[in-house]
Structure formats: structure tokens, C-alpha cells
Nucleic acid binder design. Structure first.
Length: 853
RNA sequence: GCGGGCGUGAUGGAAUGGUAGACAUACCAGACUUAAAAUCUGUUGGGCCUUGUGCCCGUGUGGGUUCGAGUCCCACCGCCCGCACCA
């Protein structure tokens, strides 16, 4: 008997695929194309199970589409710029480039044994000068079309290391290395004008039928269209009025103060002349720049002493406060506060002893606001108090509309549509990124580099070991001549956000070696991505930025019009998780937690301990596998022990693909055993005398066709776990069947085909063993015979008052009246009715009967 | 804090508003074996008794809609993702 030996068969079939060039994608107008793409990895050093799961899903789709006659493009690359390479270089003294390319080599070596149907000839890394040079060309085109501009923006500033910090590097408001209190500081930065596309990006979400509804909803909320009122408060000192934007102008009679951002021009002017105020504003600027940090920070405010007049009552004076929770980027950077109907405003007013005025009450209770602001849904009717536009009972929505109309009619305000979406700041004060291709010239200002000088390459001779940007302190790299006037000039030292790199790689894959960013003929054939697969954590930023880039690239002629929405279908898979083992007895020299690998700990005496030291370990259940938490399982070990097919089968089998899956050793073993069983079954069937007859041939073939139907549907709907459950069931049916050799041979070949997207190596082996023609990878997908799927009878459960009490088996197309008669004649029903009549009789044809008594 | 999602046996999970627990793991029992592993077969949500083609309970908690709710609605609890310089 032949044994199931993945270590021998898997490399053999991978070689066969390579030699037949089956995964090489070539433009072929005679075939329908299918572009399947998984979000490309960051080369962190090792492949982890999350990658394996992600790529296996894409591979199932790619292989399935190939066998249904599609010309498939399935490429792979690396998102290779970013901070970890700099951190590694800082820690161990190497160069980010060497670290990154070494990691890429390792990861490619780890990916190849998985048997993925990738076209490796198209591989690139975003840190290849060939790729980022084309990205620089895109930047110059965007600049020409007015899609990029410069303005000031706030960054995290570490006052000890004198460097800009990423949000990730700010821990509890302190710099991760220096431990110093982080400050917010302004720098001149480059921005993409994504806000020009707010309305389009929002509206077009409606056309993305094959995207998850939750992703569309998240993007909708992120873009955040709101209709509000813009108006001004006159200052009592006669200075320029303060313009505010509010989405609740209907609560204007509940105003208790006017609030401005610490970055508002008025705040800045006051800061310059009033040291006392400047100190308080400086206090407000402490902490990180994230919205979360701003929202959670203690509400701080300071009275400017400025007074303004209420627009509806000139005798009513309101104080102007600077408040740390007001963002300069949203609206006008100034608001009016209505504490009765906004919790944040209320907390602020209670803290600083400012008045709280109710403007409406619930219909059933006229209760003044206490500790909690009264914030009913905008669609709920409420009772208004002395509303200036004459409202009595109305919803918030109606009141907002009426107020805007009233203000416009009276001429003191105008209705304005605002978006929460801000322009995308792309400047990074870091080394390992795509250099921004502009030159600063004393006489010409900021000048784009000439395209023939691209790529502007990163220098290799840099010192990465001290904080700050090595490009800025390189002895010669900055020195160049102005592309316009030829005079001595300096290069920009900022690099691009790594999100830029990942915002157009999908387009580059259609012509990865083109001398322009894309080749329109190739892009027109291969775009759009028919199926994009990646983590839900990218639901907003990466996907929104890519949608923006597709629009901008189309404007510059790099993509066809149809590619404005680049991803036709999106699937967001869950993560592979594993418990985290955190040392409960000590921390490292910086006071940070120490994490242990799964292999370093053991369970005993009802606790978990570090094997080597015996220290107690805190087990944090089921967290995302991440290098920093050391809770990773190495796929290579799994492949060495069980083979790639087992790893592929397991990551697909145990959880629905959109949900997280927790890696367990027992699950992998189970998958291995099952594949061994399938192989044994194949071997047994192969050994049967071809003329041998048996019983139940038709039953087996009927089950086979049902399996074809269910597995096909499972793959097409991303129900991989359900498809695999179905394959388990069909394998059991086949193993127990007493059918003849011909039927069994047909069944095992179809089983191999149905399994082939998940376990391609084993399937090839079975196919060859059973005398299949050519490669199973290139064989056409089996089609279910409709005639074999028809059932003549159906079993209907009978419920009495919604509880299952009995069942009857009837002919499939029996008339409803006949089913009712049979149901009423059922013993359990007769007994329950006790001679009476049912109140109601519900018959759902083919599904269920419910008798209501 | 804000936005989005998830919650079903011992475990992973299945279930177009229609028989809750498919399929698998684990456990238990049996077969094979000198023995173990492997393999094969079978049982397994909880409870009750009258052991039946029986009854009651059961999908995070509490309400609601419906002939019928794991599924829809509301509130709460817990966990996860994102929050614009992590990728």
C-alpha cells in the first residue's frame, strides 16, 4: 500500500506546476479574466498563520476560478517600507534595506512550500527603487493636477529626543524611548486632497454591492457627512467675529459658552501676548495627537476674557473659552456649547461652573438636566422650550432643518454640508520610506524633481543609530540643483507615509515592469481586482486611500475609467489568534511586559509557568498573533510535520473565514489524520477490480452530485468551513458505500477535484493514482447533474404552538390543502386538538407545518 | 470617549425568520493487539420521571415583535477591530 507522504508528494507537484507554467498570467482576450488579490504582507521576518490563512483563502478562489475557465491573475508582493526596519537597524546596527530584503527572502522561502497558485514573475517589494520611482512619478503627476499641497499639521513631538513620534511610539502620553511627556507641535507637511472627493467616495459606496455592509458603514461614518449651520458671534470688543459650525443649531437657546480650539488663530494670538494663558495652552498641548487621546484626556479649558453677543439676543453675552477637546481640523475650529444636550459640554460646564439651560424635554417628563445630558435620537419627538423659530413638538431632525431655514431667511447664518474626512497627510520624518521627489530652491521655492531623474534613491551610507532623520544629516544626499533654474538647492528629506505604497500596488501588479506607473493596455485588461481579501483592520484607512488613489490615478491617465472603484468584491477575513503568555513576576529594564512563546511555557498545578525559570505566567486568552506579543506559531514547523495541505485544510476548516480562528495543535492533527484517511480510501478504491459490481451505485452518485452542488456553493460564498464539513460528510459516505468499482472510482476522482482548491497536492496525487488526464489543477470543475438532485419526497416537521411534536413525509409537490389534511390527521395533532379546531394552520411548503391551538 | 463587529455543548463551530447543536475535536465505551500507539465502530447539551415515537429547560443578561427568534428590534454585560504617524 502507498503511504500518505506529503514531504515527498508536495515538492513533486509544485515542481510539476512550475514546469508547466500553470500560474503564469498572460493577457488573453479570448478568456474571461479573474484577478484575485490578498493584501500583501509586511516583511516582518517570518510568515505567520494569519498569512497562511489569508493566502490560502485567495488560493482556493484562484484555483477554483482557474478550473471554471478563467484566466487568473494571482500575484504576490511585499509592503516593505516602514518603521520596524528602522527599529531593527537601530537595535542591531544594520541597514533597514539589508534587514528588509533578508526578511523577504525568508518569507518567500516559507511561502513556496504552501503550494500557492502565485505568479511569482510579478513579485515586487515597495522598497524596490523601480517601484518607488514610479510612485514618485505619480506624486509629480498628482502635484501637477493639484491633488497634493502643503500646509501645517500637528505631530507628536518628543522634546528629549528632539524627534517626531508615530502614534504607536507614544505610550500613555510619553515618548517610548525617552519617557518624556509628548507635546503636540506644528510642522509643514504634504497633503493629498482626499477631502475634494468626500462626496464621491461616500456616494460610490452604494455601488459596492460585493463589499461587506459593515465596511461600507464604517467608511460612511468615517467620511461623516453632516448638515449644519455656520454663523458668527459678534465680539463685544468689536474685533473680528468668531465663526462657528454646529450640527445642532436648534439648541442655540441652550448656549452657555463659545469654545475655540487651542490651535485657533485667536488662541495663538492670545498665547503670544499673555504668558499666563500661554502656560495653560501649553498644558492643553500635552499628550498624543490621536483622536482617542484627545477624547479621553481630561477636559481642560480657560476663559479668554473675550465676550460675544448671542445672535438672537444682543443683550445676552457669552464667554469665549479655549477648550482642549475642540479640533481645529473640523468645521471652523470653534463651537458653541449646549451642555443640556451634549455630555461633553455638560461635563465641561459642571467643571467650570458654567450655566446649563434646557431647550427641550421628553414628551412625558419635563425633567431638568442633572448629571446626564438629555440626548434623544434625532428622530424622536420632543417638546421645545421657547423655541425662537416657533417650534412646539418636533423631532431634532425637523428642528435642525427649521432652524437652518430660519437663520438663512433672517440672514445671520447659512446651511453648510461638512465632512469629517480630513486631507491625508503623507509626510513622514523618517528614513525608510519613499523620498518625496521635490527640491527646495531659494529663488524658485518648492519645485518637483524632473521625471528623468527618478527614482530619487535612498542612500545606503547612513547612520541610523541615533534618533532623527538620517536624510537630513547625510553629508551630500540633500545637495542637488534646482530642476527649474539650475541653482544649488536642497532635496526634501521627508519620506512618504507607507499607506501611499499600498494604495496602488494592485494596479502595478498588472504590469510590474512597466516604465510608467501602469501600462494602460494591461491595466484595462486585468483591472479591477475581482476579489480582494484581507483583514478587517484595514476596513477604513487602506481601503479608503486606495479608492482615492484609483480616482487620482484615473485623472492622471494611469488607470481606465472603470477602475475608479478598484476592488469589485471585498472579503474581510478574521485573524488567527493564540493565547498570550505574559510574565506575571517581572518586567524588562524599561518596565515593559515580557511575553513568552507558546513553546516556552507549560501548564501544571492549575497554573501556567515558564519552563526554564518556573516563573508564573498570566494567560491572556485568544489575542491576535503578533510578534511583539510572542504568541506566534511557525507555519514552517506545521508544514514540516504535517505538510502544506494539512495546514491549508486546517486554517479553512475550523472557523468561518470572517471570524477569528484560534490555532490549536489538536485541530492540525485532526486535519492530518483526515487527509491520510482520504488517501487510504483512494488506495483501496484503486486496488478494486474494475469490473467489480456492488449495491447502491445510484445512491452514491446522487450524494456525489449533492456534494458538488454544496461545495461549489460553499467556495463561491466564502463558506469554506461549511464546504469542508460537506467534504467530511461525503468522504464518510464514500468510505461506507458498498457501490461497485466504477461508481467509487468516479466518486473519489470528484472528491479529489472538490478538495483540490484546498489540498492541491493530495488531489493531484489521487488524480494521478486514479488515471486522471493531465493535472487536476487544469481539469474543468465538476458540474452537478440537476436530475440527480431532485428529491421525490420531503419530511416536514409538525409544530404545535411553535414546538416540534411530530413529522410527516409527503410527496415533494403535494398540494398545500392535501398537506393540511395529512397534518390534521397526524396522531400527535389529533391528540393535542382533542376534538377541537385549530386556531390557525400554517403550512410553509417544503419546510414546516405549525398548528396553533 | 467615538464608530463598527462578535457572544450557540467540554472545545472549534452548523443552522435562506421554520426540527438548535451539521461537520470536527475532546471524552467515554467497544473491536483489533501480548500491550500501547495507530486504525475501525458506537455513545455524549442539561434536567425529570411514568424509559416514551415522553415531558421540561437551553444560543451572554433582561425585555419586545412574530403562528414561530440563535437569526429581527430595544436596553445592558463581556470581548474584538478601527480612531487618520503601526502595518
Amino acid at each position: 500500500m502507498d503511504r500518505f507522504t506529503p514531504s515527498v508528494t508536495e515538492p513533486k507537484w509544485q515542481k510539476a506546476w512550475d514546469e508547466a507554467n500553470v500560474f503564469l498570467a498572460k493577457r488573453d482576450e479570448t478568456k474571461p479574466k479573474y484577478y484575485v488579490l490578498e493584501m500583501f504582507p509586511y516583511p516582518s521576518g517570518k510568515l505567520h498563520m494569519g498569512h497562511v490563512r489569508n493566502y490560502t483563502m485567495g488560493d482556493v478562489i484562484a484555483r477554483y476560478k482557474m478550473s471554471t475557465g478563467h484566466n487568473v491573475l494571482h500575484p504576490m508582493g511585499f509592503d516593505a517600507f516602514g518603521m520596524p526596519a528602522e527599529n531593527a537597524a537601530m537595535a542591531s546596527g544594520g541597514h533597514p534595506k539589508d534587514w528588509t530584503y533578508a526578511n523577504i527572502d525568508t518569507m518567500v522561502e516559507q511561502m513556496k512550500p504552501l503550494g500557492l497558485s502565485l505568479d511569482w514573475s510579478r513579485m515586487f517589494a515597495t522598497c524596490d527603487p523601480d517601484y518607488y520611482g514610479q510612485q514618485q512619478a505619480l506624486f509629480i503627476d498628482f502635484l501637477e493636477k493639484g491633488l497634493v499641497y502643503r500646509k501645517n499639521a500637528v505631530v507628536n513631538w518628543d522634546p528629549v529626543d528632539m524627534t517626531v513620534l508615530a502614534n504607536e511610539q507614544v505610550i500613555d502620553g510619553k515618548g517610548w524611548r525617552s519617557g518624556a511627556d509628548v507635546e503636540r507641535r506644528e510642522l509643514t507637511q504634504w497633503f493629498f486632497k482626499i477631502s475634494d472627493f468626500s462626496e464621491d467616495l461616500l456616494e460610490a459606496l452604494n455601488s459596492l454591492d460585493n463589499w461587506p455592509a459593515k465596511v461600507r458603514l464604517m467608511q460612511e461614518n468615517w467620511i461623516g457627512r453632516s448638515r449644519g449651520l455656520e454663523f458668527s458671534f459678534e465680539r463685544t470688543d468689536g474685533a473680528d467675529p468668531i465663526t462657528v459650525y454646529t450640527t445642532r443649531p436648534d439648541t442655540l437657546m441652550g448656549a452657555s459658552f463659545v469654545g475655540i480650539s487651542p490651535d485657533h488663530p485667536i488662541s495663538k494670538a492670545l498665547e503670544a501676548e499673555n504668558p499666563d494663558l500661554a502656560a495653560k495652552i501649553a498644558e492643553m498641548r500635552k499628550g498624543g495627537t490621536t483622536e482617542e487621546a484627545l477624547e479621553k484626556a481630561e477636559k481642560l479649558g480657560v476663559d479668554t476674557g473675550i465676550r460675544v453677543k448671542h445672535p438672537l439676543n444682543p443683550d445676552w453675552e457669552l464667554p469665549v473659552w479655549i477648550a482642549n477637546f475642540i479640533l481645529m481640523d473640523y468645521g471652523t475650529g470653534a463651537i458653541f456649547a449646549c451642555p443640556a444636550h451634549d455630555q461633553r459640554d455638560l461635563d465641561f460646564c459642571r467643571k467650570y461652573d458654567l450655566p446649563v439651560i434646557d431647550t427641550f424635554f421628553a414628551l412625558d417628563a419635563e425633567k431638568p438636566v442633572g448629571k446626564e445630558a438629555f440626548v434623544p435620537p434625532k428622530t424622536e419627538k420632543v417638546k421645545w422650550v421657547n423655541h425662537f423659530a416657533g417650534l412646539d413638538v418636533a423631532t431634532g431632525q425637523e428642528a435642525v432643518g427649521a432652524t437652518i431655514d430660519y437663520a438663512e431667511a433672517q440672514g445671520w447664518g447659512k446651511g453648510v454640508t461638512n465632512y469629517r474626512l480630513r486631507d491625508w497627510g503623507l509626510s513622514r520624518q523618517r528614513f525608510w520610506g519613499c523620498p518625496i521627489p521635490v527640491v527646495h530652491c531659494e529663488s524658485c521655492g518648492v519645485v518637483p524633481e524632473k521625471k528623468e531623474n527618478l527614482p530619487i534613491e535612498l542612500p545606503y551610507d547612513v547612520d541610523i543609530s541615533i534618533p532623527g532623520n538620517p536624510l537630513g544629516r547625510h553629508p551630500t544626499w540633500r545637495n542637488t540643483s534646482c530642476p527649474k533654474c539650475g541653482a544649488d538647492a536642497l532635496r526634501e528629506t521627508d519620506t512618504m507615509d507607507t499607506f501611499v505604497d499600498s494604495s496602488w500596488y494592485f494596479a502595478r501588479f498588472t504590469a510590474p515592469h512597466a516604465k510608467t506607473p501602469t501600462d494602460l493596455a494591461e491595466a484595462s485588461y486585468w483591472m479591477n481586482v475581482d476579489q480582494y481579501i484581507g483583514g478587517i483592520e484595514h476596513a477604513i484607512l487602506h481601503l479608503l486611500y486606495s479608492r482615492f488613489f484609483a480616482r487620482a490615478m484615473q485623472i492622471c491617465g494611469h488607470l481606465p475609467e472603470k477602475s475608479i472603484e478598484p476592488f469589485d468584491a471585498l472579503f474581510t477575513q478574521g485573524m488567527v489568534t493564540h493565547a498570550i503568555y505574559k510574565n506575571a513576576e517581572r518586567t524588562d529594564e524599561h518596565g515593559r511586559a515580557i511575553y513568552h512563546y507558546p513553546a516556552e511555557v507549560e501548564e501544571r498545578d492549575g497554573g501556567t509557568f515558564v519552563i526554564e525559570t518556573g516563573e508564573k505566567v498570566e494567560v491572556i486568552p485568544s489575542a491576535k498573533m503578533s510578534k511583539s506579543k510572542n504568541n506566534v506559531v511557525d507555519p514552517l514547523n506545521i508544514i514540516e510535520n504535517y505538510g502544506a495541505d494539512t495546514a491549508r485544510w486546517f486554517v479553512l476548516s475550523d472557523s468561518p473565514p470572517e471570524r477569528d480562528v484560534e490555532w490549536t495543535t489538536s485541530g492540525a492533527e485532526a486535519a492530518y489524520k483526515h487527509l491520510g484517511r482520504v488517501w487510504t480510501l483512494c488506495d483501496r478504491i484503486g486496488a478494486m477490480d474494475p469490473s467489480e459490481t456492488g449495491q447502491g451505485d445510484e445512491d452514491l452518485l446522487r450524494e456525489m452530485h449533492k456534494a458538488i452542488r454544496d461545495v461549489t456553493l460553499g467556495i463561491e460564498s466564502f463558506g469554506f468551513n461549511a464546504a469542508i464539513a460537506r467534504l467530511y460528510a461525503f468522504t464518510n459516505t464514500l468510505a461506507k458505500s458498498k457501490a461497485g468499482a466504477a461508481a467509487k472510482k468516479e466518486a473519489i476522482k470528484v472528491l479529489a477535484q472538490l478538495m483540490s482548491p484546498m489540498t492541491p497536492h493530495l488531489s493531484e496525487e489521487i488524480w494521478a493514482h486514479q488515471g486522471g488526464e493531465g493535472l487536476i489543477t487544469q481539469a474543468p470543475w465538476p458540474v452537478a447533474d440537476e436530475a440527480m438532485l431532485v428529491e421525490s419526497t420531503v419530511t416536514l416537521p409538525i409544530q404545535i404552538n411553535g414546538k416540534r411534536r411530530s413529522e410527516i413525509t409527503v410527496a415533494k409537490d403535494l398540494a398545500k390543502e392535501e398537506v393540511e389534511k395529512l397534518a390534521l390527521a397526524d396522531d400527535a395533532v389529533v391528540k393535542a386538538l382533542a376534538g377541537g379546531q385549530p386556531k390557525k394552520l400554517i403550512v410553509v411548503p417544503g419546510r414546516i407545518i405549525n398548528v396553533v391551538i
